[in-house]
Each structure stands twice: as structure tokens, then as C-alpha cells.
Design a protein around this nucleic acid. Structure first.
Lengths: 251, 251
DNA sequence: TGTACATCAGTGAACGCGCGTTCACTGATGTAC
DNA sequence: TGTACATCAGTGAACGCGCGTTCACTGATGTAC
């Protein structure tokens, strides 16, 4: 409340940020295992025990980085999806498919620019580290974003989210495949949470597209594509388009 | 050549195996970072420096584990694909699609039984560790296996691997999409190496299916599906089927 | 405005730990004649 | 069959390193009267 107290508090907030930023630099340079409280303190010209005034443990600092990474990725994707509308539209709006493309590319660009931060959130979990519940909300920004696109694509459809009209000659035998029991329940829950009004098979296919997106990016960053789809730019764009067809998103 | 020398050599081979097995146990229990030469030696009742008679460094031991993991996974998938033929056939042969299913399930089962070994080969790379060239061949057993399935599915097709006949009403506008330049080259190289005679768009879609397979498994093992497609059994089977349609594999 | 007190940031030493790797060595196993 | 020599597995001590975390402390900043 008082100005003087605010001065102390501002100093504290400032240092808290600086610690996190130095920590992020170390993770960016060498991965999560390279994060060392002593090294962070050294870099900041403090003694290592002083960090404990700001973060109660190494794991809490890691958690802060993880949350930031999810938020940073989510924000980048959201901006790209929103921006796609603006870019195209001098009056019109970008199609859902165009925004899907923009979002996917933004996720990949973010990941390629920060491979170790990407690994921090989508790589193998650090053994002994348990992701706390506060990471759940930031982690769900991408699914929420995708759900929003789906909801918008289906907002003018008739209700009754059970089945699509038969589409003769389509892949899979002419109808969108019926969902096996457990998946139908799960899709229903997902739909209720982030994509109301969207048919369940569309939700299921979007789940596929979602895992595909991150599966490709992980393969690219972790070196599995060397010898085949590397460099992956064209492959990525192609797959993004195939996923849009699969879901399907309106062209 | 002599029997006595063979005795010494047999002892050496035996211990080499035991070291690797104890190391694998440690990785299975706590991930690659938990692998400690000193702990391995302790468990085997030796002094840590003695291990250097068998593996010149920790990294070489890790490499041996990585190669074994790729080989173990490859063998499991190969056996499942071959076994699917045997299982169905008391005279007939399982369809390519059935073998694709069997292979995918085998990969997932293998991974779920050994999450840390899976992470060793498909998780984020250990910083500072560079995968040596000897890992390439074992790592390619899965792609080779998939390529073989494709080649078999297309073995009776007319030559000319450029385009599929127009399939009216199919997804994506009625023709298999043309491949962007770089991807076409890459698909050609892949086809030449592991799937001769297979149309390039099929190769590209198989690359999607391949990244999808491991993307889903990674998401499942690394906890990203919690709250949506978890447990993932039905989702997995559904996606495997969708990928078979996408490639497309004959039903 | 000034003094007594409370809060809090930062210090420095220490605890207890484990690691990969090197090196000179002992003693057993195997080889050559 | 027996002896001299070479090979090699395993030992034990040491090097040099870094880590997370605790704790009693000093001294500066802020608060209350």
C-alpha cells in the first residue's frame, strides 16, 4: 500500500523475474538438466542460498519455467490465429482452415526457435519431477484454441452432434467412422469443455490432428526425420493440410 | 581359436552382457539420467574403474542401450506383423491393413511396457549426447517395416509412381494432393530406399502415419492425453484406422 | 522529526551427496618353447 | 610336463568436479508511536 513498501516489493518482483530469465537462458542453452541454482546465482552475482528467498526449490523454479513456456507458446499460437484473420481481411475474415494453418505454423516456429523449452514441455518428463496442477491451464491453451476453431466452423450447423451426413465416396467407407465406446465418451467430454456443438467424429479427428502436430514437431526437433522428411517445411505444410481435410475443416 | 582363450572370452562376453543388463535395469527404473557407472559397478559387486575394461565411457554404454532398444522395438513390431499373417492364415494371409494394425499395436505395447527405454530413443535427446551412426540402422527398422507393407500393397499396381487415379468424392478434392517440391524429392528417396514402386503421395501419407504413431504414443506416455483421450486404447485404434484410410491401405 | 523495533534480503560456511575418469598396481589366466 | 613370459581383469586410491539445501548471522529497509 505504501510507496516505500512498494519500492521493496518492486525490487523483489524485479529480481524474481531476473532469476527466472537467467534460468530460462540456461534451459535454452542446455536443457532442463543443465538448470543449476548455483549457476543462476553465480550469473546474477549472488550467493546460491539467496535464491531461496525467491524460489523455495529448484523444482518450483522449473515449474515456473514450464508454465511460462506453455503460456508463451499459447500466446504465440493465439496471436497467429487471430492475426490470420486480420491479415487476410481488409473487410473479410480468414477461413477456419487458414487460421488452422497459421496456428500450426506458429507452434512449429515457436518450437524451432526454442527447442529446449519445447522439450521442457513436450519432451520426455524429467524423472522425479511431477508436473503440478498449476500447469494444467496454460497447457490447455492450444487445445482450447483448436476447440474454438472447430466450434466456429460448426456454429451454423444443425444441432445433434452425433453424426455427420453420409458423404458418398469419402474415405473410410462413405461415412465418418463410428467411434468406439470409450472414445465417444471422451470426445463428448472434450466437446463439452472446449468445442460445444461439434460432432464427435470431428472431435476425434481433431485429437488426431493435435497429436500429429506435436508428433511431427517432436520428430523434427529430436532428429528422427533426418534421412527422410528433412528439412521438414514442405512435409509439415502438407501434413497440416491433410489434417485439415481429415477433421474436416471447411476450405 | 583355442578352448582356453575362449573360456576367457566367454567370461568377458558374459560380463559385458551383465553390465548392459544392469544398466538397462537402471534406465528402466529412472530414465537415462539415472544411469550411473558407479551404481552399475556397485550392483555387480565390482569397483567402478573395472567397467572401463568393458565400455570405454558412459556414453558408449548408453549407445549400446539405445541400439538394443531400437532393435528390441523393431523385432517386436516385425514379429507382430509377421505373426498377424500366421494368426489369420490357416491358409490365407492377413491383409496389409491387418498387419499394419498389428505392427502399430506392437509398437505401443512395447512402449508402454518400457516407458523409459522408449523415452531413451523417442524422447528428447540427452543434452551433450550425440547419437552415433551405428544407431541409424536399428532406428530404421520401423520405417523399413512400414515401407515393406506399402510395397506389398502396391506390388500388383501398374508402374509409374507419380499419381493415383482420380478417386471421385475422396477427401481433398477427389485426387491425392500433389506434393510440394521438396517433399516430392524426399518421398522419391524414401520410396527408392524402402518402398519401391509405391506412389509418392502414398509415401507422403505414410510419413504422416509414421509420425502420428509415435506422436500419439509419446503423448500418452508423457501425460499429455490426461483429461482427453486417456486411457488411450480406443483412441489409438481409431487413429490407426484413420491413418490406414489416409495412406490408403487396402481394407 | 526522531527513536525503538520488526521485517526481510543477502552472506558465508557447512552438510552430505554422487559422479566420470585416470593410473599404478597385483595376481590370475593363457601362451610358447 | 615344466618353466619363463605376456596378456589381461580387477583393485584401490585419487583427481577434480558440481550439486541442492540448511542455518545462524549481519545489516539495510521499512513501520509505529
Amino acid at each position: 500500500m505504501k510507496a516505500t513498501q512498494n519500492a521493496r516489493e518492486r525490487a523483489r518482483a524485479q529480481l524474481t523475474r531476473e532469476i527466472k530469465e537467467e534460468a530460462r537462458r540456461q534451459v535454452a542453452a542446455g536443457g532442463a538438466q543443465q538448470l543449476s541454482l548455483r549457476a543462476v546465482a553465480r550469473e546474477l552475482g549472488m550467493v546460491s542460498s539467496a535464491l531461496y528467498r525467491y524460489y523455495p526449490s529448484r523444482d518450483e523454479l522449473l515449474t515456473a519455467l514450464i508454465i511460462d513456456a506453455y503460456d508463451s507458446l499459447g500466446a504465440a499460437a493465439e496471436a497467429a490465429v487471430a492475426g490470420a484473420g486480420v491479415a487476410v481481411a481488409e473487410g473479410g475474415t480468414a477461413s477456419v482452415r487458414e487460421r488452422w494453418r497459421a496456428g500450426c505454423r506458429a507452434v512449429r516456429d515457436w518450437a524451432k526457435a526454442r527447442p529446449h523449452e519445447y522439450a521442457l514441455i513436450y519432451g520426455s518428463p524429467v524423472p522425479g519431477y511431477e508436473a503440478p496442477p498449476q500447469t494444467v491451464a496454460p497447457a490447455s491453451r492450444i487445445p482450447v484454441l483448436i476447440g474454438g476453431l472447430l466450434a466456429e466452423a460448426w456454429k451454423d450447423q444443425p444441432a445433434g452432434n452425433q453424426a455427420e451426413p453420409d458423404r458418398p465416396g469419402g474415405r473410410g467407407g462413405g461415412v465418418l467412422a463410428a467411434l468406439p465406446g470409450r472414445l465417444a465418451e471422451q470426445a463428448e467430454i472434450v466437446a463439452a469443455a472446449i468445442a460445444p456443438g461439434v460432432p464427435l467424429p470431428v472431435i476425434a479427428n481433431a485429437l488426431i490432428a493435435w497429436t500429429q502436430l506435436f508428433g511431427m514437431i517432436s520428430f523434427e526437433l529430436f532428429g528422427q526425420l533426418v534421412g527422410s522428411a528433412d528439412p521438414a517445411d514442405d512435409f509439415f505444410d502438407y501434413a497440416v493440410e491433410q489434417m485439415a481435410d481429415l477433421i474436416p475443416l471447411p476450405a
